[in-house]
Nucleic acid binder design. Structure first.
Lengths: 153, 153
DNA sequence: AAGAAATAGGTTGCGCACAATTTAATTCGC
DNA sequence: GCGAATTAAATTGTGCGCAACCTATTTCTT
């Protein structure tokens, strides 16, 4: 009884903790990224491209768990800012390949202090951060799995 | 050197883990709340009101870390759906008090299975969930503290 | 008591996030 | 080889989340 209610409240609390901490992260990054004219989602797209250029929209979406409805307008804004170019793949005209411009590559240098500054706000060791990251990623995986199942497993 | 770069990547990874897991939670709740005609943010506002009715917009915002720019339109939608009423406080006309309607109170019953169903997706014990919730909340607190400081502490 | 400062809530504008749908290109089945 | 099914991206519409700004009310100062 009491235990059940407590557990039920807990599931809500856990979700809310992630909901609110992701907003807190977003606000923290906003201040750091504003001088670069980037939002956090734009920044993570660039992180992906800095690691591997010439990806398709779909490949970026798979890495970030985002779909074209989110990425297409975001990528158009990054193109408008001059950081990337979007070109149809000549081999498969359905695909759009994203590649960095000189300006996009140059941003990497200007952004290299950002993770360090965020790291200062975390108040935890690298090992703790590593462990927490893994635990959260595992949880995300389970949620994705549940989402791909029929309504009531 | 290598250690530094690894740590820098880690801070990004931790933030991204929260960013993506909160989307995953959002999608999970969306399916459960859709029959009730609620979004997750609307649901958490109702959770707060089910706990304590007659709160002001500001008090709701303090509990959820949201401001009036987010809450005002959301509350208007909840009012449009008939779940709450918004009335100016007669003692202090600046404040707007939110109170549940009969429909809003009745929703609580219909929503009572939701946390349990989410709990099933978590794949962790109540103790693990409790510990994780606390750790994430502590991190959120530190981020809020950092945010209220001057640019470079 | 009168003006200044603070406070609560609302408004505007922008950028996600995502469901649902559409369009165009490619691949599959026969 | 040709129509059907599949796939990639774009489009449309809704709802946050927040900064910046505005309005109305209350409180502070003197």
């Amino acid at each position: 009884m009491t235990t059940d209610l407590t557990n039920l409240a807990l599931d809500n609390q856990l979700c809310f903790a992630f909901y609110s901490v992701s907003h807190a992260f977003n606000r923290a990054y906003r201040r750091l990224l504003e001088p670069l004219g980037l939002t956090y989602p734009q920044y993570v797209v660039l992180l992906v491209l800095w690691e591997q250029d010439e990806l398709t929209v779909k490949e970026i979406g798979e890495r970030l768990f985002l779909d074209s409805g989110t990425l297409t307008p975001l990528l158009k804004r990054l193109e408008g800012a001059g950081h990337i170019r979007r070109t149809r793949d000549r081999k498969d005209e359905r695909q759009v390949r994203i590649h960095l411009t000189e300006s996009g590559r140059a941003l990497r240098e200007r952004a290299k202090e950002v993770p360090f500054q965020v790291g200062c706000m975390l108040g935890m060791s690298a090992d703790e951060a590593r462990a927490l990251t893994q635990e959260v990623a595992k949880l995300r995986g389970r949620l994705h799995d549940s989402a791909s199942l029929p309504p009531d497993p």
